[in-house]
Amino acid sequence: MIVFFYLFALISLILALGVLVFKNPIHSALSLVGTFFCLAAIYVMLNAEFVAVIQVLVYAGAIMVLFLFVLMLLSTKDNDQYALKLNVSRGLAVAITGVLMIQVLTAFMDPTLRFGEPGAYPVERIQEIGSIALIGQLLFTEFVLPFEVISILLLVAVIGAVIIAKRRVP
């Protein structure tokens, strides 16, 4: 089990680096899709099946398709000007990111890290109720207000996207 975790972790890291280094944005996008799949697999191992499913459906499916769609729509020949070049400020960016990463890692690896009291849903309980049923219950009871609010956000986003992307008729 744990071996699979490391395997997927490694693949996802490689693919993520691919997003960073591929010259062609379509390759980047495809490698990002791969990363998402690996993450979905890790979610399953972490007993979050529902998240894994929507990760595949929404992220890898809908969102990435949208990205690819736009990329193809706007395909430009001048890939040169997007080449990954290093200069002073980019070097600085790398340095800062490195420091940032070390900081986060030290924080996460800290053996004294405490997580507080265990919650009400240990793995056994989730498996007993079923992950999806549990999330459904929670969404429509405890989190019903954010759930409704987020639906309005989606509506606004849809309308906004249409308005922004609409070709203006003079």
Partner: peptide
């Protein structure tokens, strides 16, 4: 994920 979807839609249209 919902917010990310919304953000992707609006961002891409921008």
């Amino acid at each position: 994920i919902v917010v990310a979807a919304a953000e992707a839609v609006v961002g891409l249209s921008i």
